[in-house]
């Protein structure tokens, strides 16, 4: 094998490898949407997080704007403290409403943000004031049955 031909092939191989890594990062891993280097962190207390997991997306109007980075249990308030890492391109008002939602009937759970009307924006380290817990199927069914029973009683 000629030396130069070998060099050419090896060069081609390395370029292919680097391009593959870039495709994985940019096209598959979507590196440009969520860059932890430019992010701010906020927390929120939830009474019940249901099946929410670390790394679940944070969406507003269906667009991913951040990710859940940590979930802790608070021994003071006996609820869950969820830490969100937000893309700093997206600023939200102080009174933004956070709820844990499910994509589809059996899909993954994520945090949905509904912007409020406050003038001041959420800063790094701020705490979300208004949160809504995850819907838990058992509770839902229980409530449904309870209402049903109440309806029947009133009849």
């Amino acid at each position: 094998m000629q030396r130069t031909a070998m060099d050419l092939w090896v060069g081609l191989f390395v370029v292919m490898g680097i391009v593959a890594l870039m495709i994985l990062s940019l096209k598959v891993g979507n590196l440009n949407v969520y860059n932890p280097a430019q992010s701010y962190t906020i927390t929120g207390n939830f009474e019940n997080i249901g099946g929410l997991k670390v790394r679940a997306p944070v969406k507003s109007a269906g667009v991913v704007v951040g990710r859940v980075t940590d979930i802790q249990f608070s021994t003071e308030t006996y609820d869950a403290i969820v830490t969100l890492s937000m893309d700093s391109r997206f600023q939200f008002p102080k009174d933004t409403f956070a709820s844990i939602l499910t994509s589809g009937l059996l899909g993954e759970q994520y945090i949905g943000l509904a912007a409020g009307g406050d003038e001041t924006k959420l800063q790094h380290g701020d705490k979300l004031m208004k949160t809504n817990s995850a819907m838990v199927l058992e509770e839902l069914i229980g409530r449904f049955l309870f209402n049903k029973a109440a309806e029947d009683d009133s009849l």
């Binding site: 994985l24 990062s25 096209k27 598959v28 891993g29 979507n30 590196l31 969520y34 790394r55 990710r67």
Partner: peptide
């Protein structure tokens, strides 16, 4: 593509792989 991109995380999936 979009489902893929929202589920695959750069740090956790690509870098770990």
């Amino acid at each position: 593509w979009s489902q893929m991109q929202s589920a695959v995380d750069f740090r956790f999936d690509i870098v770990n792989g």
